[in-house]
Design a protein around this nucleic acid. Sequence first.
DNA 1: CATCTAGGTGGGAATTAGTGGGGCTTAGAA
DNA 2: TTCTAAGCCCCACTAATTCCCACCTAGATG
Lengths: 141, 141
Amino acid sequence: MFIGEYRHTFDAKNRISLPAKFRKDLGKSVIVTRGLDRCLFIYSKAAWKKETERIAQYPSNGAGRGLARLMLSGASETDVDSAGRVLVPDYLKSFAGLSVKSVVAGVNERVELWDEKAWDAYTATIERDADALAESLNSHS
Amino acid sequence: MFIGEYRHTFDAKNRISLPAKFRKDLGKSVIVTRGLDRCLFIYSKAAWKKETERIAQYPSNGAGRGLARLMLSGASETDVDSAGRVLVPDYLKSFAGLSVKSVVAGVNERVELWDEKAWDAYTATIERDADALAESLNSHS
DNA sequence: CATCTAGGTGGGAATTAGTGGGGCTTAGAA
DNA sequence: TTCTAAGCCCCACTAATTCCCACCTAGATG
């Protein structure tokens, strides 16, 4: 279970260090993928396996194939180096609009990677609308 | 399991190199064939065998016969050379609109080969609709 | 307050991957 | 048979990746 928010920076070689608190649970090899809301998801190998099983259930029509392609081809398995860093490919960096300053956030089963500006803007709106969002969730049940 | 997106180029002899990460799982001999959505599929021999079994299950109506012809008649078995490259016949290159810059994408059991422009256009539309598609798929469960 | 330690960052060097091309060999056409 | 074209094997160059080591800062400790 990952919790907390950390501000780290990309170096010239597209590496970013994972918070020390996350390293044990993530293991020595992680999968970075496209996430929702323009951020990246980082999974441990075990969590990723569960994710692929979900993807395999997608319908075999055009939309299902497209999403499967996006999630699978967008994934990248990388080893964590001896300093606790992972390598993020260019196409994932540009997908999430990552430049240098980034936020690494723990969200339960997964770790998320955000551009710092996008994170600040996103959390600001969520904080503002939190009460309303909570209401809409409760009204469903 | 193949994942990730790589940009490689065809040389003057119609060869393209496979990403180093895929080579072990693909083996020394691969099958290249026509795929869906105007791209080519590349299978290892083992994965191709399973694929032919699936194709044999297609209904014996016009659509099933058509798909079976597409996959089977277009198939080409080639060895991977010492530098990790495969040879793609002209008729397959022109089917997928491949010129020089291409994308090699890992999608679970198979590897896909796309023209770079076509890939960028395709992923752009999927990305745009991704959040909505994900919502509609999840609402089924 | 000085020192020590752990976590985050930067960068050099060795290795590997991607690409280009020469030339031999085989197959098919004239 | 001979000529031609395509496939295949090998070598070579360059750029990217990976591995490793060193520094630096902040917080903890005595």
